[in-house]
Design a binder for these strands. Structure first.
Length: 878
RNA sequence: GGGUGUGUAGCUCAGUGGUAUGAGCACUACGUUGACAUCGUAGGGGUCGCUGGUUCGAUCCCAGCCACACCCA
């Protein structure tokens, strides 16, 4: 027996536990159909589930469950990411509570602590994914720092190195002074701020009273200046080229050079060149062979190359200005809108810093990654995102992969006594190579840097399948079928996966990439912890059930658009689940259950034929839309069918049958109900796996679990069966509408006459009289050939006229008003038809079918108009 | 500055070269027996951002403009 109320908490967790314990998420490797695989975008091991995950993983689970029901070999590969900076930050924060820094522990001990933390507190998100219903194969769960994945990292690193696609270089990189590491361009966010532009002047060497005027936003970097640049086209300043300027405060001589970087139109036309601390100046420095002077410590305080060692940049800036003022060289300070780079994790200003770092030759790797998309080997859905992808890939810069952190994959790089580099997968191999090179045993020193987290994420599509070992899963599931991810991760992850996979596997990592939007708050603002507008999916699930949240995500997911959170809507989908629950209870109460061997093609009652045809139609819509990744259309098709057809009409229409005497009809109807409810449970299961399973388990003894039930193959839809009932529904709606407009008490049982009906309508009326009477609250419904009398309310219905005798209770004023309104409407439509059909070019050029349709509408409207006018005539005198 | 996207009912959004049967929520009226008030029935509400163009016909295609959002510099 089903409980009276739908209460998802009673069964959601229980059902999930059963699936997992029974191995229902494991791929059936014997399946004879195609393989379908998704690798999960690995959440950070430190992460907790947010609405973005809820959307992302719901969409994946829908696809996975759908394909599993299609009978394919299905793998949803789960796992988590070690998330270098994020995780190190969390653990360091914990240590800080006890007043300990990672340096107190030392590298090995610290990493041990991180692992311990990971075992104890990491992966909360995987439990939360279970609560959401995600049917990942948890027996295959991977972590980016697992031994297997680490081996993949080392192997691909060595390959890239030996192919010359990884190299070490001294370059300007983005330096995060909080974590004291280099970061990639992608981890830098540019923030617009109103800063200051400082105008001051440098004296010209040997020409007292002569100056060159400088404008800069960062005066404190002047100690790293090694030139001043002026454009050779700058008429006012070009005479200074070749002379020297004197750096004030430190009294250093620097050349004034000609370089196009100094735009005569901007600032003062002269630019101070600080090659070690500005990306543009670095390029200028290279062109002119200028010395590079580093003026910063790793923590972004000034170093001993400046007069202010140990001072932070802000304070140093003030000091510099004071000194310049003392020297009478400061001219003015203006507000200046500018863009300042910040670390996306640390939120501190990123300093361009000259350091030794490791780079991946992304421009070379990008070539194949671009080609694969151009050739359609990997397709973006929606397609428009390929533009974003191409745009970025074609302008890609070398990727800085070294991080001066402790938590991460240590690079497989060893240095000999003379700093010669040995890059091998293991220490033994490196040692052997070194010993061979030097001809005797040497001590090797391992590189201390670790790799950017995204390096290992980039291998995720094949490393999780067991690469580099040959194995059944890799053979079966690579390339994976589709990657589902948000657009903000295209550069970080999609692009890197493409590059790494094309390089190593020579094949795309996934055949399709479905890109979805962000989940925003109710007002459409981006959710963020700092704004305090986040909604916790776990709380939503607690309140409305996982099915309601999932259905919300699916129903709102239209390709490429962001989703605004809406609690009302989630409540609405909870109500939808309640509706289905109660429909199932209705079936239970009336002994409606699936019958073994029932042939739905053999039913005879039109109502049963109709709902079966509708169910097949809905199935077809869900199938087609899921195949096209049209999640909202798929979800809405089930929703409309369940609520709008099955509950609103079918259940109401079969009541007279179920409460009647005809046992044959009853039996057929009960079996049909059972069949249709089963069909609903099947096509709704990918969206709402919990309630559908609970109902499946409670409505019959089953040979197969719903999660493995077969998705229906394409079927013939008996569209003729739909017409009878569509006629009936229209008639009932017309009567209800008339009743409502005439303010007839809901409880009043009336007689319905149909006058002027053709043979088909007459037959319909007779066949469905009991249904019509039941749903339209009528005493009887019959064909009428008599005169229309003054006590009848009347309405137009197709070729006939509806009459409701009201024994003197018709309000003629209201009736006249209603009829006049209808007449007005008809006239408006007729005007339109006349205009169109009177236009010769329309009649000549529009397709014949369109013209015919227009004529049909015109004829129908004319007939209706005549009926309404007659009716008005009749009651004119009352 | 470059790029992408969005402007449709009070709100949040679907959708389409042929009268917008638009959806959910909100709103109004009425609620009747035995699935469901987490409900039912009926109803009101829109010059589909603005201006041109293509077309027999444009909310839909094209161009320009206005507004907003996002990405990259």
């Amino acid at each position: 027996m089903l409980e009276k109320n739908y209460n998802p908490k009673d069964f959601e967790e229980k059902i999930y536990a059963d699936w997992e314990a029974s191995g229902d998420f494991k791929s059936d490797m014997r399946a004879d159909k195609d393989a379908f695989a998704i690798v999960i975008p690995p959440p950070n091991v430190t992460g907790v589930l947010h609405m973005g995950h809820a959307l992302n993983d719901t969409l994946q689970d829908i696809l996975v469950r759908y394909n599993r029901m299609l009978g394919k070999k299905v793998l949803w590969q789960p796992g988590t990411d070690h998330a270098g900076i994020a995780t190190q930050m969390v653990v360091e924060r914990n240590l800080a509570k006890d007043g300990i820094t990672r340096h107190d522990l030392g590298r090995d001990k610290f990493i041990e602590t991180v692992w311990k933390w990971k075992e104890q507190s990491g992966g909360i998100i995987c439990k939360q994914l279970r609560r959401l219903g995600a049917s990942c194969d948890w027996s295959r769960e991977r972590f980016t720092m697992d031994e297997g994945l680490s081996r993949a990292v080392r192997k691909i690193f060595v390959n890239l190195y030996k192919d010359g696609l990884i190299y070490k270089a001294k370059k300007l990189v983005n330096w995060d002074s909080k974590f004291m590491t280099a970061v990639s361009d992608l981890e830098v966010v540019q923030k617009e701020t109103v800063g200051k532009m400082y105008y001051y002047k440098y004296p010209i060497e040997g020409e007292p009273g002569e100056f060159i005027h400088i404008a800069t936003t960062r005066p404190e970097t002047m100690f790293g200046d090694t030139a001043v640049a002026v454009s050779k086209d700058n008429e006012k300043l070009k005479h200074l080229i070749g002379k020297n300027a004197v750096l004030p405060i430190v009294d250093k001589i620097i050349p004034i050079i000609a370089d196009e970087h100094a735009d005569p139109e901007k600032g003062t036309g002269a630019v101070k060149i600080t090659p070690a601390h500005d990306f543009n100046d670095f390029e200028v420095g290279k062109r002119h062979n200028l010395p590079l002077i580093n003026i910063l410590n790793p923590d972004a305080t000034l170093n001993e190359n400046t007069p202010f060692p140990g001072m932070d940049t802000q304070t140093a800036r003030q000091k510099t200005i004071e000194k310049l003022e003392e020297l009478g060289l400061m001219e003015r300070i203006e507000d200046h809108p500018m863009v300042i780079p910040y670390g996306d994790r640390s939120n501190v200003v990123i300093e361009p810093m000259l350091t030794d770092q490791w780079f991946v030759d992304a421009p070379t790797l990008a070539k194949e990654a671009i080609r694969a998309v151009e050739d359609g080997e990997m397709q973006f859905v929606p397609k428009s995102y390929e533009k974003t992808y191409f745009e970025w890939m074609r302008n890609i810069q070398p990727w800085c992969i070294s991080r001066q952190l402790w938590w991460g994959h240590r690079m497989p790089i060893w240095y000999g006594p003379d700093d010669k580099i040995f890059c091998e997968e293991t220490e033994e191999e490196a040692q052997a190579a070194a010993d061979k090179h030097y001809g005797h045993h040497v001590e090797l020193r391992r590189e201390t840097d670790v790799l950017d987290t995204w390096f290992s994420s980039g291998l995720w599509a094949f490393s999780t399948l067991g690469w580099p070992d040959k194995n059944e899963y890799l053979d079966t599931f690579y390339p994976t079928s589709v990657l589902v991810t948000a657009f903000d991760i295209i550069f970080f992850w999609v692009a890197r996966m493409m590059m790494m996979s094309m390089y190593m596997m020579k094949r795309v990592p996934f055949r399709k990439c479905y890109i979805h939007g962000l989940v925003r708050d109710e007002q459409g603002r981006k959710m963020s912890k700092s704004k305090g507008n986040t909604v916790d999916p776990m709380e939503t699930i607690e309140k409305y059930g996982a099915d309601a949240l999932r259905f919300f995500m699916a129903a709102m997911e239209t390709q490429g658009r962001d989703i605004n959170m809406s609690e009302a809507r989630i409540a609405g989908y909870r109500n939808f689940a309640t509706k289905l629950w109660n429909a199932a209870r209705f079936g239970e109460m009336n002994n409606c259950a699936p019958v073994k061997g029932f042939d739905e093609k053999g039913v005879s009652h039109p109502v049963n034929k109709w709902i079966i045809a509708k169910a097949k139609e809905a199935t077809e819509q869900v199938t087609a839309n899921l195949n096209a990744f049209r999640f909202s259309d798929a979800a809405n098709a089930v929703y409309q069918f369940v609520w709008g057809a099955f509950c609103d009409w079918y259940i109401e229409m079969i009541k007279p049958i179920l409460y009647g005497e005809d046992e044959t009809q009853k039996a057929e109807t009960r079996a049909t109900f059972g069949w249709v409810l089963d069909r609903i449970l099947i096509i709704l299961h990918p969206f709402m796996p919990f309630i559908t399973t609970e109902l499946w388990n409670n409505t019959a003894d089953r040979d197969v679990k719903l999660i493995h039930a077969a998705w229906p193959q394409s079927e013939n839809i008996d569209s003729a069966a739909m017409n009878d009932i569509d006629w009936t529904i229209d008639l009932i709606s017309a009567v209800r509408s008339l009743r409502s407009e005439m303010n007839i008490p809901a409880g009043a049982r009336l007689t319905l006459y149909l006058k002027g009906a053709d043979a088909a309508s007459a037959e319909h009326l007779q066949s469905f009289a009991s249904i019509i009477c039941s749903l339209a609250r009528l005493e009887k419904a019959e064909i009428y050939t008599g005169e229309i009398t003054s006590d009848m309310a009347q309405g137009v219905f197709r070729e006939a006229v509806l009459l409701l005798p009201l024994k003197g209770v018709v309000d003629f004023a209201a009736e006249r008003e209603r009829l006049n309104k209808e007449l007005e409407n008809l006239n408006k439509n007729l005007e339109g038809y006349a205009r169109k059909l009177g236009n010769p070019s329309f009649v000549e050029r529009a397709p014949a079918a369109v013209v015919e349709e227009e004529k049909r509408r015109q004829t129908e409207a004319l007939e209706n108009k005549a009926k309404v006018e007659e009716a008005l005539q009749r009651i004119a005198n009352f």
